[in-house]
């Protein structure tokens, strides 16, 4: 294998990892604040994808521009789901939380199937397969753009959590729910915001991947699993960790496919996941124990 192949693998791994990071960050926020593992995370992404698809085909809005609409819409959608369902099971048995989100995921994907049929939807933009060349390495135009947007969103989130009152209140809730409540923080509101944020990030990831991928009702499940891996890798609740986790997974998959083989690369991903769990259960960037 030549070094240019390896370079190509690393570069495209990082770019794809950017989108993974966005999914992971959404999941990590939800988990951090509510301690609920959201099995419907990929399905939220799917909703974002359909939204993007219809904005593009019906109104002609470019997927990268329509993110401006997707983010608030998905935020409201996530907030409603939190208020109606997730809220009722915070602090209940973990298996019930898992099953509730599985049930919600089934409802979302099968409603999408009834509404839009199970047909694959393909969003074709003028740049879907465009690329530019830097020193013999081809870089996908849409991927590069989505990586840029991901970077901006992650920075904004970081600022939000560090500098704003609401952001700090959410962090306080994540650290200790009861203490936060005693401090006068509206914990319920914070949970709604957190789930809203998680949903809008998942939706955004869906929007960003749409021009290079495809859309169908069951598209979410593969990404849910990936999101788990990324989140644990980075440390549950850590935004920087999830971002890093996403990029690591992207690169491992991509480089694994050329150095080992594309059929074993997922074993590599899961093995790294288990290793991190065992050696550093709090994840790469996690602070708390277990």
């Amino acid at each position: 294998m030549t070094s240019s192949v390896l370079m190509q693998a690393i570069i495209s791994g990082i770019l794809v990892g950017g989108v993974y990071a966005l999914i992971g960050v959404g999941l990590t926020i939800i988990f951090g604040v509510m301690r609920v593992i959201n099995f419907a995370h990929g399905d939220l992404m799917m909703v974002g994808m359909y939204l993007t698809y219809f904005l593009f085909t019906q109104l002609g809005i470019d997927p990268f521009v329509s993110v401006i609409i997707t983010i608030p819409t998905m935020f409201i959608f996530g907030g409603i789901i939190q208020k109606l369902f997730i809220n009722r099971i915070i602090g209940s048995l973990p298996q019930n939380q898992i099953l509730l989100t599985i049930g919600l995921g089934l409802i979302m994907s099968n409603s999408a199937m009834l509404a839009f049929t199970s047909d694959y939807k393909i969003l074709t933009t003028s740049y879907s397969s465009s690329s530019f060349n830097i020193m013999g390495i081809s870089i996908s135009q849409p991927l590069a753009l989505s990586f840029l947007i991901t970077a901006v969103i992650t920075l904004l989130l970081y600022w939000f959590f560090m500098k704003t009152d609401t952001g700090q209140a959410i962090r306080a809730t994540a650290q200790d729910r009861e203490a936060a409540q005693l401090m006068g923080i509206n914990v319920k509101r914070m949970s709604i915001i957190a789930f809203g944020l998680g949903a809008s990030l998942a939706g955004t990831a869906g929007a960003l991947i749409s021009p290079t991928y495809y859309i169908f009702p069951q598209v979410g499940s593969a990404f849910t699993l990936k999101a788990f891996v990324i989140t644990v890798l980075g440390g549950m609740g850590s935004i920087v960790g999830a971002t890093l986790g996403g990029i690591i997974i992207g690169v491992v998959e991509s480089v694994g496919a050329v150095t080992i083989s594309s059929d074993w690369k997922d074993v590599l991903v899961f093995s790294i996941f288990l290793l991190v769990l065992l050696i550093k259960p709090a994840g790469l960037m996690g602070k708390s124990s277990t």
Partner: peptide
């Protein structure tokens, strides 16, 4: 879909 709704109701 109905299956999913039932799961949610049970939980």
């Amino acid at each position: 879909l109905i299956y999913g709704i039932l799961v949610v109701i049970v939980i």
